[in-house]
């Protein structure tokens, strides 16, 4: 636990000076606040921008930031030095992962506050966000473990992020895409966020989410075993 807290603190100091990662955490919460308060169109569903940007936030921020952080540490050799200093790989992953999860949850809280939710709905909103962020973290970790350099991580994470972030939006306009998108965690999360006030989970929603978590855990394990953390 001691090392996890130390890594968490280090990551906090580092992020404050790392604009590329910092902007990932801040961009969508700010966009949500601005769009939600400035654009009002007749017939627009309630919390439209909140749900739209919340899904995009889940698909982008945790995935790209953790992939970039892990790949940068590998590229700069800071991770190798750290693992030679009484730190176990799982402590590092937990330290960085918990930091990004919490930072994203703060962003999620801002997005939630922008919506017109009751306390009960807000709790459900945050639970859905927490689950989505966790799945994205697994994908980002797999990319980070697989990539030798930050450039490589970026070139992999951008298309992956685009797919998971934009599928829910595209599926609104195309039924064919919707049929495929429903098997992704981001579409499931988007559907749940749209029903926060009357959420009724069906078995297939839970099964798809668990299958996504399982799949990305396997992917991460494969990347970790194949490439390690150095």
């Amino acid at each position: 636990m001691h090392n996890i807290i130390a890594i968490f603190k280090k990551q906090l100091k580092d992020t404050l000076k790392n604009k590329t990662v910092l902007i990932q955490f801040v961009m969508f919460p700010v966009l949500t606040l601005v769009m939600n308060n400035t654009i009002k169109i007749d017939g627009m569903p309630e919390n439209f921008f909140v749900n739209l940007f919340a899904t995009m936030y889940i698909g982008m921020a945790p995935l790209t930031s953790i992939a970039a952080i892990v790949a940068e540490e590998k590229e700069q050799n800071t991770l190798r030095v750290l693992l030679m200093s009484n730190v176990k790989p799982r402590e590092y992953l937990l330290g960085v992962g918990s930091y990004i999860w919490l930072a994203c949850m703060l962003g999620a809280l801002v997005i939630c506050a922008a919506g017109s939710y009751t306390i009960h709905e807000s709790i459900i909103f945050m639970i859905i966000m927490a689950t989505g962020i966790l799945v994205s973290l697994l994908i980002g970790l797999a990319i980070g473990a697989w990539s030798k350099t930050q450039m490589m991580a970026t070139s992999i994470s951008i298309p992956v992020m685009m797919i998971f972030s934009f599928l829910p939006m595209l599926s609104m306009f195309h039924t064919g895409i919707a049929k495929i998108a429903k098997f992704t965690y981001s579409e499931q999360v988007s559907m749940m966020l749209n029903q926060v006030s009357s959420l009724q989970l069906e078995v297939n929603n839970v099964v798809i989410l668990i299958a996504n978590i399982f799949l990305f855990t396997v992917l991460f394990s494969f990347a970790y075993k194949k490439c390690g953390l150095d």
């Binding site: 130390a6 100091k13 580092d14 790392n18 190798r80």
Partner: peptide
Amino acid sequence: IGIMMDSLGLYDRLSVYNNLAFYADIYR
């Protein structure tokens, strides 16, 4: 053990003090 590698493995954005403070935390 103490190791100084050929690729130094320092955190570029952190200050000199914060680099050592991090490892002070790790080493208790």
